[in-house]
Design a protein around this nucleic acid. Structure first.
Length: 289
DNA sequence: CGCCAGGATTGAA
DNA sequence: TTCAATCATGGC
């Protein structure tokens, strides 16, 4: 019964990676470093063990390669870290969490989640996404009886709902934005597959044609779902990080910070961003989740 | 530029 | 207990 996959990898901080505001449907299972979440239509348990990550599923994955893709275990992290600027803030950020990774998520789930993320804290995004799954996803087999897990509802499913249905999931003014995105995709007017073949600027512009998707959210999706490593989402945490760490003496405009980020952090700027983000959120006590 | 959207959480009264 | 500030993005 069930299936186990072992993914060999070093320098992988599973907990930090799954809990760093990239993905919203993974939770720590009581006791130890075990995480549970959904990949496609399977409930998956992940455990950090010496030399790698062990994955358990109730029924075998449709595609075992999907797990490697999602976790990005084959990415040579050390080589990426070497491309970071050799300055004090970056060194501190990497030292704070040397095994932090970027995931490679499903584009639709990622896009929908980040449309819902606007002006929301991570705990609240989790709640909304969970509610959306409970109401409109499909039930999935879990490890123990009584547990309830749901797939993430696809664009076709959401497209047939009403704004009122979605508002019922406590997403407020984001409801029409999510509904519109689902309908654009379901109708074939927005092709999430086609984004893969575009260059960064074109892909960003394309995503930003969706209502509720500005530069920050587009960058999150490009980085977390499409692997555009140069995407550099600037939220208040990153803005604060850049301001405090790189421009402590004078106030830098948003424009200036953005231009600085684009040139300073190199070809894997998105990774650097994730390290700074995590560093800023964990170094002070009493951080918001 | 400045306001508004909705709800969970935190801290104050 | 209630109440008000906070969070932090995009559209107009």
């Amino acid at each position: 019964m069930g299936a186990t996959i072992f993914l060999p990898v070093n320098d992988y901080d599973l907990g930090a990676t799954l809990d760093s505001g990239q993905a919203f449907r993974w939770r720590r299972v009581a006791g130890g470093e075990v995480w549970e979440g959904i990949l496609g239509r399977r409930v998956v348990r992940l455990e950090a063990v010496p030399g790698g990550i062990r994955a358990h599923t109730v029924t075998p994955l449709e595609d075992p390669a999907a797990l490697r893709l999602f976790l990005q275990t084959e990415v040579a992290l050390a080589a990426i870290l070497k491309t970071f600027p050799d300055d004090a803030p970056m060194r501190a950020a990497v030292a704070a969490c040397p095994g932090l990774r970027l995931l490679r998520q499903d584009p639709w789930e990622c896009l929908a989640s980040f449309i819902l993320s606007s002006t929301k804290q991570i705990v609240q995004i989790r709640q909304i996404v969970a509610l959306l799954g409970e109401r409109y996803g499909e039930p999935l087999a879990g490890f123990t009886a009584g547990e309830r897990h749901y797939s993430f509802p696809g664009p076709e499913r959401l497209a047939e709902l009403s704004e009122v249905d979605l508002r019922g999931c406590k997403m407020g003014f984001r409801a029409p934005n999510l509904l519109n995105a689902a309908r654009e995709i379901a109708a074939g007017r927005m092709d999430l597959e086609a984004i893969c073949g575009m260059d960064y600027a074109a892909a960003r512009e394309r995503l930003m044609t969706l209502r509720g998707v500005g530069g920050k959210i587009a960058d999150c999706v490009l980085l977390f779902a499409y692997g555009f490593d140069t995407a550099f989402p600037v939220d208040v945490w990153i803005e604060r990080a850049l301001q405090e760490l790189y421009f402590p003496r004078r106030r830098a405009s948003d424009q200036r910070l953005r231009r600085f980020a684009a040139t300073h952090f190199g070809q894997h700027a998105g990774y650097a961003q994730q390290y700074l983000f995590h560093y800023m959120r964990t170094k002070r006590a009493g951080r918001p989740t």
